[in-house]
Design a protein around this nucleic acid. Structure first.
Lengths: 327, 327
DNA sequence: CTGAAAGCGCTAACAA
DNA sequence: TTGTTAGCGCTTTCAG
């Protein structure tokens, strides 16, 4: 059932359990040959250290929990991949949990896992600020795609990215952009809208907003109809999924992209490259976001609460066929 | 640091630690009012049971590890989602690990995690049969997208699916199908080839094979060139990613899909629906595969080794524009 | 450099 | 129904 323990190894190797323990955790503090003998015996017996027992005493679990606000969204998979990658490098285990877009579920999961992990990386957390602060008081936390003063975070530079989007659209002659907004409690949605609006003002064009929409393909229909009704010449959808849904509905209604309406998305998911027309979208190294978040968590050591790093990764406006000159 | 323990709760509630323990794990075996008092005190103190301590003694970890052969492949996302979903229902934690297409990494990860989880679900495992048997000897295991006598498994019915593909192609007048094969150590690749071949024979057309190819978009170029060189009129790619890569290369070379070559994929990933032409592909409820695998694992209880369930889920041939009459 | 012994937080007999 | 008492497998003082 549950394999050999250090006792078995100690007996077989004729040493004390503590020596076996040291042979594994502090190789320096055991003489070379005893250690060798122990390792040999351990290997022969098929001994595996029990992570639970280890964690119980040491308080180190070698585990980080990643909470994703909606595991359904393909965009998050790059974050997950990056996080998994970085965790593995340090021989940490990545625990994946889905919050199902529900702050309550997110909170419960975090509370449940809290005593068993070294820290949390939260992807696009939907928790209110106060709750985030509470979590941070218990365990190291790194936010992804969200910022909060006092907490470490990794985000793509959407302010700059939105500026690029608006500049691109303006250069094509558009005098107005319509933002199809994401979920109400999404920090990202608020950030993008603010950035879009500011950028628009700066170049002297108007910015409007519609929504919120659940950022899925299926919601694209409603969003598209709203956009048409608003007489938009250029729409910026909260993410690529929504953008693709918008394009599908537009095509269905006989409107051409980009001749009648230009469409821009966010995330640069794989589908944005293969759909037609190809979707102009704000991409970035999402894998690096995941990677950096775990990196920050693992090195969280001794940073003061008022000295939490905010990592800003560059975005990249990927131009494809969905944007064109204003009609 | 590490919150209150049952001792703190016991003291505060004026009961023994065992009573506190019972109040949480066997609510029935404690009088209603003492339990209520305990829970109240626990809540007030912010007590959270420590999963490690619990696991150490009980041997139940409430955790299942999911090992994915290549987390890069979007197809697995559905499996992951399904697994996460089912795990959550039973308040199990899903531990996600990536094997990076390497049997060695896969083996090491499994060994490392083995003492800390209740079982494994292995997605498209690349391990040789013997290793799988060894793993199964230590812990309950459920295979996804792979079968092995003596082990529980959940797979889509590719035999039937391949028959549908071949029938579809034959009905369009194709007299030959070319399978662009997946990785050499992929059970799926072998299964698909065997099924395709058998189905082709049955309807009296020829089947050929090229590869193996790493099933990524980037490999589609080589696969496409090989297919053209072989004079194929219909190709069946190991997955949608490869199929999309093939279509891109074909377009680049001025060949039309489906007029010159029909293309079929596997998995029905999101991109298959939005690429152009839309990709005909063998889909299925992948989320259910993930769900069923975890389900099987959690109910693994007392099944004999020779009585391991093999769940076969239906496939569905999704017809899109990439297949057409033979030229 | 190595051994003895005391727990980490919790559960599971066994009593009461 | 509740309390007492051993541990689960490991790390970590503290001696030797």
């Amino acid at each position: 059932m549950s394999g050999p323990t250090i006792y078995d190894v100690a007996t077989a190797a004729q040493v004390a359990t503590s020596t076996v323990s040291r042979a594994f955790s502090q190789p320096g503090r055991v003489s070379a040959d005893t250690r060798e003998r122990i390792l040999a015996v351990a290997a022969e017996l098929g001994y595996r250290p029990n992570p639970h027992a280890r964690a119980l005493l040491s308080g180190k679990h070698h585990t980080v929990a990643m909470v994703v606000s909606d595991i359904t969204n393909p965009h998050y998979f790059d974050l997950i991949r990056g996080a998994e990658l970085r965790a593995r490098v340090s021989e940490y285990t990545l625990l994946l949990v889905n919050a199902e877009e529900s702050p309550r579920v997110e909170w419960e999961q975090i509370q449940r896992l809290s005593p068993a992990v070294d820290g949390f990386v939260l992807a696009a957390s939907r928790l209110p600020d106060e709750n985030l602060q509470q979590v941070a008081a218990q365990r190291p936390v790194v936010l992804m795609s969200r910022e909060l003063p006092g907490l470490a975070s990794v985000v793509l530079d959407h302010v700059e990215g939105c500026r690029q989007i608006v500049a691109h659209l303006a250069s094509l002659g558009h005098r107005d952009v319509l933002y199809l907004s994401g979920p109400r409690n999404s920090w990202m949605a608020a950030t993008r809208w603010a950035a879009l609006r500011a950028a628009a003002e700066q170049v002297g064009i108007s910015a409007r907003r519609l929504g919120p929409f659940t950022p899925k393909v299926s919601q694209g229909g409603a969003a598209a109809d709203g956009a048409v009704n608003a007489g938009a010449t250029a729409v910026v959808a909260h993410n690529d999924l929504l953008a693709i849904g918008v394009m599908q509905r537009l095509a269905q209604r006989g409107l051409r992209v980009p001749e009648d309406v230009s469409v821009v998305g966010f995330d640069d998911i794989f589908a944005a490259d293969v759909c037609s027309p190809g979707l102009t979208t704000l991409g970035g190294a999402h894998v690096d976001v995941g990677r950096a978040a775990v990196e920050l968590l693992l090195t969280a050591g001794v940073r003061a609460p008022d000295d939490q790093p905010r990592v800003l990764l560059p975005t990249e406006l990927v131009l494809r066929a969905s944007t064109g000159p204003c009609r």
